[in-house]
Amino acid sequence: MEHYTMNLTLKVWRQKNKKDKGGFETYTVNGISSEMSFLEMIDVLNERLVHEGKDPIAFDHDCREGICGMCSMYINGRPHGPWEGTTTCQLHMRAFKDGDTIVVEPWRANAFPVVKDLVVDRSAFDRIIQAGGYISVNTGNAVDANATLIPKDDADAAFAAAACIGCGACVAACKNSSALLFLSAKVSHLALVPQGNPERKSRALDMIAQMDKEGFGSCTATGACEAVCPKEISITNIARLNAEYGRAGLTIDK
């Protein structure tokens, strides 16, 4: 792998707080190594801004290894940047070349209000989980782990859905700001394991009701969510959610 350095122009959304109108600021950064991660490039810029006595760019990030789901930048027209199956923190600068202009925006959705600069409030996702994204089992009630057999394929499919990191890229990418991929991943995860069975009807209905209440749009199956999902959660989960929802709506007895 050949390494190189590059000079870049950054156009970054700056917004002091929720109420501020906000706008783009342009920065140039020089001598960026292709070995850096994207966030390390922002670190370099921020260090310079602090040195100049300016307010550094606020952005969410934590684990920097693609699993916590905290990072959330919309880079050059794509959530988490140009690479597939990647979070912003895993994006490396070799994805860019010398002289590039990079536009960085926050997730845009009314259900994700901007807190500051590139930081948004995703607490709506927590409230959707509170509406039913769990199995009601108190600590200490469990039977032996091997008492219930789960076919490997079901376990694998449940895992694939449960791999969702709740970053919100699906919402950011969706032209309708729908959270259905997030929601369907959870419903699928819990519908695919037998332990999730007793609550599956109310789960699908309640979580969708909460999603609507939070102000997310509805799904029109464009597939943008699946394309940008850093964990490559399949849009098929949405179809499964539709089935769960339909069945629950037709058969629930209350």
Binding site: Y134, I135, V137, T139, G140, N141, A142, V143, D144, A145, N146, T148, L149, I150, P151, K152, A155, D156, A158, F159, A162, H189, L190, L192, V193, Q195, G196
Partner: peptide, 22 residues
Amino acid sequence: ASIIDQCVAQGVPFAREYGGLL
């Protein structure tokens, strides 16, 4: 051992063998 039981009851999708066991 109870931890594994508890987590499975919560729906944690641990890796499984073809026979359905952990």
